[in-house]
Amino acid sequence: MMYEIVSTVKRDYIIDLARQGKRVDGRALDQYREISVEKNFVEPAQGSALVKLGNTQVLVGVKLERVEPFPDEPSSGVLIVNAELLPLASPTFEPGPPDENAIELARVVDRGIRESKAIDLEKLGIKPGEEVWAVFVDIHVLDHDGNLIDASALGAIAALWSMKPPDVEDWKLPEFPISKKPVAVTIAKINERLMVDPCLDEENVMEARVTITTTEDGSICAMQKGGVGCFTPEELEAAYELARAKAEELRKFIG
Protein backbone atom coordinates (compact mmCIF):
# COMPACT_ATOMS: atom_id res chain seq x y z
CA MET A 1 0.00 0.00 0.00
CA MET A 2 1.23 3.47 -0.89
CA TYR A 3 0.89 6.32 1.55
CA GLU A 4 -1.41 9.30 1.43
CA ILE A 5 0.52 12.54 1.09
CA VAL A 6 -0.45 14.75 4.01
CA SER A 7 0.91 18.26 4.08
CA THR A 8 1.98 19.91 7.30
CA VAL A 9 -0.53 22.66 6.62
CA LYS A 10 -3.44 20.20 6.45
CA ARG A 11 -2.21 18.30 9.49
CA ASP A 12 -1.81 21.47 11.58
CA TYR A 13 -5.21 22.69 10.49
CA ILE A 14 -7.04 19.53 11.59
CA ILE A 15 -5.09 19.33 14.85
CA ASP A 16 -5.85 22.95 15.64
CA LEU A 17 -9.54 22.44 14.89
CA ALA A 18 -9.57 19.45 17.25
CA ARG A 19 -8.18 21.65 20.02
CA GLN A 20 -11.28 23.81 19.57
CA GLY A 21 -13.52 20.74 19.54
CA LYS A 22 -14.18 21.14 15.82
CA ARG A 23 -13.78 18.95 12.78
CA VAL A 24 -12.59 19.45 9.23
CA ASP A 25 -16.01 18.72 7.71
CA GLY A 26 -17.93 20.71 10.30
CA ARG A 27 -19.34 17.73 12.21
CA ALA A 28 -19.69 17.48 15.97
CA LEU A 29 -17.18 15.18 17.66
CA ASP A 30 -19.88 12.57 18.30
CA GLN A 31 -21.50 12.85 14.86
CA TYR A 32 -21.39 10.25 12.10
CA ARG A 33 -21.41 11.20 8.46
CA GLU A 34 -24.61 10.50 6.55
CA ILE A 35 -25.33 6.77 6.59
CA SER A 36 -27.26 4.70 4.10
CA VAL A 37 -27.67 0.94 3.93
CA GLU A 38 -29.13 -0.73 0.84
CA LYS A 39 -29.84 -4.38 1.49
CA ASN A 40 -30.08 -7.18 -1.09
CA PHE A 41 -27.94 -5.25 -3.55
CA VAL A 42 -26.60 -8.39 -5.24
CA GLU A 43 -28.82 -11.34 -6.17
CA PRO A 44 -26.31 -14.22 -6.30
CA ALA A 45 -25.45 -13.61 -2.63
CA GLN A 46 -27.79 -15.00 0.02
CA GLY A 47 -27.40 -11.70 1.85
CA SER A 48 -25.83 -8.39 0.91
CA ALA A 49 -25.67 -4.74 1.84
CA LEU A 50 -24.22 -1.62 0.23
CA VAL A 51 -23.19 0.80 2.96
CA LYS A 52 -22.41 4.45 2.41
CA LEU A 53 -20.78 6.39 5.21
CA GLY A 54 -20.35 9.84 3.74
CA ASN A 55 -18.24 9.18 0.66
CA THR A 56 -17.01 5.82 1.91
CA GLN A 57 -18.71 2.92 0.13
CA VAL A 58 -18.50 -0.75 1.06
CA LEU A 59 -20.41 -3.65 -0.47
CA VAL A 60 -20.71 -6.80 1.63
CA GLY A 61 -21.99 -10.08 0.21
CA VAL A 62 -22.66 -13.27 2.13
CA LYS A 63 -22.69 -16.68 0.53
CA LEU A 64 -23.36 -20.11 2.01
CA GLU A 65 -21.35 -23.05 0.78
CA ARG A 66 -20.89 -26.62 1.87
CA VAL A 67 -17.48 -27.34 3.37
CA GLU A 68 -15.78 -29.93 5.53
CA PRO A 69 -16.01 -29.04 9.23
CA PHE A 70 -13.03 -28.39 11.46
CA PRO A 71 -12.02 -31.63 13.24
CA ASP A 72 -12.53 -30.14 16.71
CA GLU A 73 -16.07 -28.96 15.91
CA PRO A 74 -17.44 -31.60 13.56
CA SER A 75 -21.06 -30.49 13.61
CA SER A 76 -20.60 -26.75 13.71
CA GLY A 77 -20.84 -24.31 10.81
CA VAL A 78 -17.91 -22.13 9.81
CA LEU A 79 -17.66 -18.33 9.58
CA ILE A 80 -15.13 -16.88 7.13
CA VAL A 81 -14.70 -13.12 6.77
CA ASN A 82 -12.58 -11.74 3.94
CA ALA A 83 -11.90 -8.13 2.96
CA GLU A 84 -10.59 -6.75 -0.32
CA LEU A 85 -9.21 -3.22 -0.48
CA LEU A 86 -9.86 -2.92 -4.19
CA PRO A 87 -7.52 -0.66 -6.17
CA LEU A 88 -10.59 1.09 -7.56
CA ALA A 89 -11.36 2.40 -4.06
CA SER A 90 -8.28 4.51 -3.45
CA PRO A 91 -5.14 5.70 -5.24
CA THR A 92 -3.16 4.12 -2.40
CA PHE A 93 -4.61 0.60 -2.80
CA GLU A 94 -2.69 -1.72 -5.06
CA PRO A 95 -3.73 -4.96 -6.74
CA GLY A 96 -2.61 -8.11 -5.00
CA PRO A 97 -3.44 -10.38 -2.09
CA PRO A 98 -4.85 -8.75 1.06
CA ASP A 99 -2.24 -6.68 2.90
CA GLU A 100 -2.08 -6.13 6.66
CA ASN A 101 -4.76 -3.44 6.54
CA ALA A 102 -7.20 -5.65 4.67
CA ILE A 103 -6.51 -8.55 7.01
CA GLU A 104 -6.95 -6.41 10.12
CA LEU A 105 -10.22 -5.06 8.71
CA ALA A 106 -11.54 -8.57 8.06
CA ARG A 107 -10.48 -9.85 11.47
CA VAL A 108 -12.02 -6.96 13.40
CA VAL A 109 -15.34 -7.50 11.60
CA ASP A 110 -15.01 -11.24 12.14
CA ARG A 111 -14.51 -10.87 15.89
CA GLY A 112 -17.57 -8.68 16.30
CA ILE A 113 -19.79 -11.28 14.66
CA ARG A 114 -18.10 -14.35 16.14
CA GLU A 115 -17.70 -13.24 19.74
CA SER A 116 -21.19 -11.78 20.01
CA LYS A 117 -22.45 -15.21 18.90
CA ALA A 118 -24.67 -13.34 16.49
CA ILE A 119 -24.82 -16.44 14.28
CA ASP A 120 -25.72 -19.77 15.86
CA LEU A 121 -23.04 -21.76 14.09
CA GLU A 122 -24.13 -24.93 15.92
CA LYS A 123 -27.25 -24.98 13.79
CA LEU A 124 -25.27 -24.89 10.55
CA GLY A 125 -24.20 -28.52 10.48
CA ILE A 126 -25.31 -30.77 7.62
CA LYS A 127 -23.70 -34.19 8.18
CA PRO A 128 -21.59 -34.22 11.38
CA GLY A 129 -17.94 -34.78 10.59
CA GLU A 130 -18.56 -34.61 6.85
CA GLU A 131 -20.35 -31.49 5.76
CA VAL A 132 -21.33 -28.19 7.34
CA TRP A 133 -22.37 -24.78 6.03
CA ALA A 134 -19.68 -22.16 5.66
CA VAL A 135 -20.80 -18.54 5.90
CA PHE A 136 -18.55 -16.51 3.60
CA VAL A 137 -18.72 -12.81 4.40
CA ASP A 138 -16.93 -10.92 1.63
CA ILE A 139 -16.21 -7.24 2.23
CA HIS A 140 -15.66 -5.33 -1.00
CA VAL A 141 -14.36 -1.80 -0.40
CA LEU A 142 -15.47 0.41 -3.31
CA ASP A 143 -14.61 3.96 -2.23
CA HIS A 144 -12.27 4.78 0.65
CA ASP A 145 -12.92 8.04 2.43
CA GLY A 146 -12.13 6.80 5.91
CA ASN A 147 -13.53 4.53 8.63
CA LEU A 148 -13.71 1.34 6.63
CA ILE A 149 -14.11 -0.69 9.81
CA ASP A 150 -17.48 0.74 10.85
CA ALA A 151 -18.82 0.72 7.30
CA SER A 152 -17.69 -2.89 6.79
CA ALA A 153 -18.98 -4.13 10.15
CA LEU A 154 -22.34 -2.46 9.56
CA GLY A 155 -22.46 -3.89 6.04
CA ALA A 156 -21.60 -7.37 7.29
CA ILE A 157 -24.25 -7.49 10.01
CA ALA A 158 -26.88 -5.89 7.76
CA ALA A 159 -26.09 -8.45 5.05
CA LEU A 160 -26.38 -11.29 7.58
CA TRP A 161 -29.76 -9.99 8.74
CA SER A 162 -30.95 -9.91 5.13
CA MET A 163 -30.11 -13.56 4.46
CA LYS A 164 -32.47 -15.57 2.30
CA PRO A 165 -32.25 -19.28 3.11
CA PRO A 166 -30.73 -21.22 0.24
CA ASP A 167 -33.19 -23.12 -1.90
CA VAL A 168 -31.72 -26.62 -1.37
CA GLU A 169 -32.90 -29.81 0.30
CA ASP A 170 -30.11 -29.88 2.86
CA TRP A 171 -31.29 -26.61 4.33
CA LYS A 172 -33.62 -27.56 7.19
CA LEU A 173 -33.89 -24.29 9.11
CA PRO A 174 -36.85 -21.93 8.63
CA GLU A 175 -34.44 -19.03 8.38
CA PHE A 176 -30.84 -18.07 8.79
CA PRO A 177 -29.92 -18.46 12.50
CA ILE A 178 -29.00 -14.94 13.48
CA SER A 179 -30.04 -13.33 16.76
CA LYS A 180 -27.81 -10.37 17.63
CA LYS A 181 -26.78 -7.06 16.14
CA PRO A 182 -23.17 -6.26 17.04
CA VAL A 183 -22.15 -2.78 15.90
CA ALA A 184 -18.60 -1.45 15.61
CA VAL A 185 -17.95 2.17 16.49
CA THR A 186 -14.52 3.60 15.76
CA ILE A 187 -13.22 6.54 17.73
CA ALA A 188 -10.19 8.51 16.66
CA LYS A 189 -7.95 10.53 18.92
CA ILE A 190 -6.61 13.81 17.58
CA ASN A 191 -4.94 16.36 19.83
CA GLU A 192 -6.40 14.84 23.03
CA ARG A 193 -9.91 14.85 21.55
CA LEU A 194 -12.03 11.80 20.83
CA MET A 195 -14.22 11.80 17.73
CA VAL A 196 -16.37 9.12 16.11
CA ASP A 197 -16.28 8.03 12.48
CA PRO A 198 -13.01 9.61 11.32
CA CYS A 199 -13.02 10.67 7.67
CA LEU A 200 -9.90 10.03 5.62
CA ASP A 201 -8.33 13.43 6.35
CA GLU A 202 -8.75 12.72 10.04
CA GLU A 203 -7.44 9.17 9.77
CA ASN A 204 -4.33 10.52 8.10
CA VAL A 205 -3.47 12.71 11.07
CA MET A 206 -4.97 10.81 14.03
CA GLU A 207 -2.66 9.58 16.76
CA ALA A 208 -4.67 6.45 17.39
CA ARG A 209 -8.08 4.87 16.98
CA VAL A 210 -10.08 2.38 18.93
CA THR A 211 -12.94 0.28 17.64
CA ILE A 212 -15.44 -0.97 20.21
CA THR A 213 -18.09 -3.43 19.10
CA THR A 214 -21.14 -3.70 21.32
CA THR A 215 -24.39 -5.65 21.24
CA GLU A 216 -27.94 -4.56 22.08
CA ASP A 217 -27.42 -4.88 25.85
CA GLY A 218 -24.42 -2.55 25.73
CA SER A 219 -21.90 -5.28 26.42
CA ILE A 220 -18.64 -5.36 24.50
CA CYS A 221 -17.84 -8.26 22.18
CA ALA A 222 -14.73 -6.98 20.40
CA MET A 223 -12.18 -4.19 20.55
CA GLN A 224 -9.23 -3.13 18.49
CA LYS A 225 -6.82 -0.31 19.10
CA GLY A 226 -4.91 0.90 16.05
CA GLY A 227 -2.33 3.57 15.28
CA VAL A 228 0.93 4.43 16.97
CA GLY A 229 -0.51 6.78 19.62
CA CYS A 230 -1.87 5.80 23.05
CA PHE A 231 -5.06 6.06 25.10
CA THR A 232 -5.44 6.71 28.82
CA PRO A 233 -7.84 4.48 30.77
CA GLU A 234 -10.17 7.49 31.17
CA GLU A 235 -10.19 8.04 27.44
CA LEU A 236 -11.12 4.43 26.86
CA GLU A 237 -13.99 4.71 29.31
CA ALA A 238 -15.23 7.77 27.47
CA ALA A 239 -14.76 5.92 24.18
CA TYR A 240 -16.87 3.04 25.44
CA GLU A 241 -19.73 5.38 26.43
CA LEU A 242 -19.55 6.98 23.00
CA ALA A 243 -19.46 3.61 21.27
CA ARG A 244 -22.47 2.33 23.17
CA ALA A 245 -24.55 5.41 22.44
CA LYS A 246 -23.58 5.55 18.76
CA ALA A 247 -24.12 1.81 18.26
CA GLU A 248 -27.78 2.32 19.12
CA GLU A 249 -28.09 4.85 16.32
CA LEU A 250 -26.27 2.68 13.82
CA ARG A 251 -28.24 -0.43 14.78
CA LYS A 252 -31.39 1.13 13.32
CA PHE A 253 -29.86 0.78 9.86
CA ILE A 254 -29.51 -2.99 10.17
CA GLY A 255 -33.29 -3.44 9.93
Binding site: P44, G61, V62, N82, E84, P97, P98, D138
Partner: peptide, 12 residues
Protein backbone atom coordinates in the same frame (compact mmCIF):
# COMPACT_ATOMS: atom_id res chain seq x y z
CA UNK B 1 -16.51 -10.00 -6.58
CA UNK B 2 -16.72 -13.33 -4.73
CA UNK B 3 -20.49 -12.89 -4.37
CA UNK B 4 -21.08 -11.81 -7.98
CA UNK B 5 -21.79 -15.36 -9.18
CA UNK B 6 -23.81 -18.36 -7.96
CA UNK B 7 -20.82 -20.30 -6.67
CA UNK B 8 -18.51 -18.11 -4.59
CA UNK B 9 -15.52 -17.04 -6.64
CA UNK B 10 -12.21 -17.17 -4.85
CA UNK B 11 -10.77 -13.65 -4.60
CA UNK B 12 -7.84 -12.73 -6.81
Amino acid sequence: APFSVEERKRPG
